[in-house]
Simulated assay, not measured.
Amino acid sequence: MRFQTSLALAFSTILAATTFAQPVDEAAKLVTATAAPARFADHKPKFSFATETIDFKAGDKKSIDFIMIKDGDKYVAALHPGMNQLDMITFNPTKTVEKPPFKDYYAWGTLLGVRITTAAWYPEMWASGKVSRDITVGDNGATLRLKTTQTWTGERNGDSTFDMTLRCDPVLGYVWDITTDLAIDKPFTNPKGEFLTPEFFNWQVRVTKMGRRNNQPWPESWDHERTVFHRSDDKLVGFFMNPEANDRGPFKRTDVKEGGYVAKLPGPEGWGVALAHLEKGASAARNNTCNMWADSHNYLKLPKSPDADGKYRIAGKWRFQALPPETVKFNLDNAQWDRMGVK
């Protein structure tokens, strides 16, 4: 297969010239194999955060308190505490902004950049439990840690923790290193008695080119027209995002390879964005891309048996990152594409 052959050749060339510890996940391997340069090697971040009230002209809420994350005196991201979602304005340290680009109202159609959830989604439990949040800055501003914990009591008892650390990578720019865990004593089931699968991340780019077909009013935001993922059979596959292809095509609810990734591309200046699945224990990971908003649902399956304390527990490690243009090009050239009639 062309993907496997090309990647093998890329690795053999690099390994012949250098000695290094081989990355353990596919996204990191590809970034290395495609020789993406260290564009941000000289950048020294100085992260900080503060709550800011943003006033809107329209929408259900005219004023919303966001936790704004800065690098120096410019904005990097906005956290919506009530929705448990983080909106990355940019992954590029040279593209931070003096003023957050909010529209007249805030919703999934008016995102600042790339949105990702910071708490688990599980039936009837999303935002229904007690939520605590802790944000700290470390290493004299070089890192920022966001830790969100949910606890549930009553008919079902359990907890979930998302531990996310922001840093600056010399090749990738801003990166979130993430560990997650969820434990529950009574998993939800479908009519067949099978456990329902917790959704650990739901993430979405600002507006895809699918927006042209949905009459989105901000054409400057049309980007990231394709979804790509490293499937469990070790194939790189993807599709053009449109209402027909996303979760109705042959890639519906696809199992992602352990150590694989899901990516949206190409974006501005050839960059992409990816969620790398670094580790998920013995449970399979799935991706499902919505045909309405083109948001990716990333799941981990619960184990069949509980731990000694009677709770079903699943943990994972992830990396939320940009993909450099060199790596994006490799994806575009080597993925198995399903166009679903859209050119």
Rank of each mutant, 00 (worst) to 15 (best):
M164G: 02
T148N: 07
Q150W: 11
L172N: 07
W152Q: 04
K103I: 04
R156T: 01
K95P: 02
Y106F: 15
I135P: 00
T118G: 06
L111P: 02
P170G: 02
A127E: 12
A107C: 02
I178G: 05
D163W: 11
M88N: 08
A127K: 14
P100I: 10
R145L: 04
M125V: 09
T151W: 07
G141F: 10
E124P: 03
D159I: 01
M88D: 09
T110M: 03
M88R: 05
S128C: 08
V97L: 15
E124H: 13
S128N: 14
P100K: 06
M125S: 10
Y106K: 01
D134I: 09
E155M: 02
L111I: 08
D181I: 01
M164F: 04
L111A: 11
V97C: 14
G138Y: 06
Y174S: 02
T148E: 00
D181L: 02
G138A: 14
E124W: 05
S160V: 05
M88V: 12
G141M: 07
I178P: 04
Y174L: 00
F188D: 07
S160H: 03
D139V: 02
D104S: 15
G158N: 07
E155F: 06
Y122E: 07
A120F: 11
N140H: 13
M125Y: 08
M88S: 08
K99Y: 09
T117F: 09
D134W: 00
T96M: 10
V171L: 06
I89T: 03
D104H: 09
D177L: 01
F162M: 02
T117I: 00
W126V: 13
T179K: 15
W152A: 09
T90K: 12
D181W: 07
A119M: 03
G158A: 08
T143M: 04
A142I: 04
T148S: 02
P101I: 14
T161H: 01
